[in-house]
């Protein structure tokens, strides 16, 4: 192998490790220098990866386009209530209508609350009924255990938090039945709980 052949062979065996290449390199300082310099270039090339920062214009343009196309949507739930489901949960699709029923029930309840002379009505929210068919929190958790056992701790915590929110909001409404803000908080809390079901359904869609 001569110098020209060595150089041509580097396209196939770039590190000069073939028997023929090594035999030539042992006797040729120029080709040895060439191989070393190509190695330097290869090593330095890695530093060019992720070396540049785009200008803020790029994100601004992206965000404008996302909003224009409707890809960014208003968030419907608090972050703490969004479980990061990694698995499908197809068996619990029926919870979507259940969540809708819950919202309907809450709407009726709030309407009653807003009527004059009916402010003494109390509603128990410590263990709210999640749907008209009688599903409660325990049964819901059983579904989680059956279908996505890994999600149990996270779901348990989220459920506890939302029930706490409902309890606190209910307390405010009981204390001040005419407080618009308190009623809105209670509505929001129920809404969050229903959205918790809905989020699970979102993850189960193919």
């Amino acid at each position: 192998m001569n110098c020209v052949e060595l150089q041509q062979s580097l396209a196939e065996v770039e590190d000069g490790s073939s028997v023929e290449q090594r035999a030539h390199l042992r006797a040729c300082t120029a080709c040895t220098a060439l191989v070393k310099e190509l190695d330097l270039i290869i090593a330095a090339a890695g530093e060019l990866q992720a070396a540049e920062e785009p200008s803020p214009r790029v994100w601004n343009s992206i965000e404008i386009a996302l909003r224009r196309e409707g890809l960014i949507r208003p968030q419907r739930v608090e972050r703490l209530l969004v479980p990061s489901f990694a698995t499908r949960w197809g068996a619990a699709r029926w919870l979507v209508p259940a969540a809708a029923m819950l919202l309907l029930a809450v709407g009726i309840y709030m309407r009653r609350e807003s009527q004059p002379n009916q402010l003494t009505q109390q509603a128990s929210v410590a263990t709210p009924v999640a749907n008209a068919s009688g599903l409660n929190d325990d049964e819901l958790m059983q579904e989680v255990v059956d279908n996505a056992p890994a999600m149990k701790p996270q779901y348990e915590e989220n459920l506890w938090r939302v029930n706490e929110s409902i309890r606190e909001a209910q307390g405010l409404v009981d204390d001040s039945p005419n407080d618009e803000e308190a009623r809105r908080s209670l509505m929001d809390a129920y809404h969050q709980k229903s959205m918790l079901f809905e989020m699970a359904m979102d993850r189960s869609l193919p």
Binding site: A50, A51, E52, E53, P54, V58, E63, L66, I72
Partner: peptide, 27 residues
């Protein structure tokens, strides 16, 4: 997962995480 739901913050987080590599490749 949040970006799939249209969460603006999630879009931004993914952008921040990958912007340098993508932009450098393009450049």
């Amino acid at each position: 997962e949040r970006a799939k739901l249209g969460d603006a913050e999630a879009f931004r987080a993914l952008y921040d995480k990958h912007k340098r590599r993508v932009y450098s490749l393009c450049l």
